[in-house]
């Protein structure tokens, strides 16, 4: 659908041949094309503005080398800037010194929390852990049933609990959470994954519930599960959740589609927290640790990033 950034830059640099340096004038059009590419990838406008200024500052005055064309040189600068913003290394997972380690899943409605809870359990089991699942989503129809099916299909322990006809509300949520943590301890499970209801960052009541869950469970990880198809609003929701909960990481879901995933940059930018995993499908094993360089080339329109960087 989109023209590759490399092609756009080649067009922009058509007239810049041979020796010389990159100047304000001759990179103007290139910067405009980079802006377009980043916006098409859903990178937040303010983040785009910051990035463009950094790229401009780095590019101006750079000598045009013989080994790399101006296009390649600028692509490399852009690539490095994006990598810098995303944080270079893939993040580690924190475990409690005294088990169970509690992982609290948080996010907007439909972002993929329940599915990701199952995926995390599978991933933890592969790493030799004994995870337990619990759903405290007492609000959405069949939400707890959904996690139960996920637990069964992944052969993971789940604390089902009993709602005892109690009305859906924070009191019930807290009771289930407390019981699950105790159950995990009794059953010798070293990790407890707590699936929560989807909520809007501006929903005061439900955000307070989340704060209370955090206080009650003292989680090592609070993962913000975000849909990779999110547009400019990603900064708002990420900021809301981070302000209330101090999230410790991000899971970017539905990366098996063709969304460019610029939301990753936005979320990282406003929270400063690393993207730890990506969701690559609906099945429990479609889950991978996050690699910043991959999303960088994706945002820039795939292309021949690897070969280019070998030349540099």
């Amino acid at each position: 659908m989109f023209e590759n950034l490399t092609e756009k830059l080649q067009r922009a640099f058509k007239h810049l041949r041979g020796q010389g340096v990159l100047t304000e004038e001759n990179i103007g059009e290139a910067l405009r094309e980079i802006r377009v590419a980043l916006l098409e990838a859903d990178v937040n406008l303010n983040v785009v503005k910051d990035l463009i200024e950094h790229i401009r500052a780095k590019a101006v005055g750079t000598e045009v080398m013989t080994a790399l064309s101006p296009t390649e040189q600028v692509i490399k600068i852009v690539h490095d800037e994006l990598l810098e913003l995303l944080g270079k290394d893939t993040a580690r997972f924190k475990f409690a010194s005294r088990p169970p380690t509690v992982i609290l899943m948080a996010g907007l409605q439909g972002s993929g929390k329940t599915t990701t809870s199952g995926k995390l359990a599978v991933w933890l089991k592969k790493g030799g852990h004994r995870p337990m699942l619990v759903s405290v989503d007492v609000y959405r129809p069949a939400a707890r049933e959904q996690l139960k099916v996920v637990a069964k299909s992944t052969e993971t322990r789940i604390y089902e609990g009993d709602t005892k006809g109690e009305a859906a509300g924070t009191a019930l949520v807290e009771r289930l959470a407390k019981e699950a943590k105790r159950e995990a301890m009794i059953m010798g499970c070293d990790t407890l994954i707590v699936d929560t209801a989807g909520r809007l960052g501006i929903d005061e009541e439900l955000m307070q519930e989340m704060e209370r869950l955090k206080k009650l469970l003292d989680p090592q990880e609070i993962l913000f599960v975000a849909d990779s198809m999110t547009g400019q609003d990603a900064v708002n929701s990420a900021q809301d959740f981070h302000r209330r909960l101090s999230i410790t990481g991000v899971v970017l879901t539905k990366m098996d589609g063709d969304a460019r995933g610029g939301a990753a940059l936005s979320i990282r930018h406003v929270t400063g927290q690393p993207i730890k995993f990506i969701g690559m499908g609906e099945k429990p094993d479609a889950f991978e640790p996050f690699h910043p360089d991959r999303i960088t080339s994706r945002i820039l329109g795939h292309g021949d990033m690897a070969t280019l960087l070998e030349k540099a």
């Binding site: 859903d42 439909g110 198809m229 400019q232 990603a234």
Partner: peptide, 12 residues
């Protein structure tokens, strides 16, 4: 379509 959807919405 989710109102949070970005430019991918066109392709959807």
């Amino acid at each position: 379509m989710d109102a949070t959807t970005g430019q991918n919405g066109l392709q959807q």
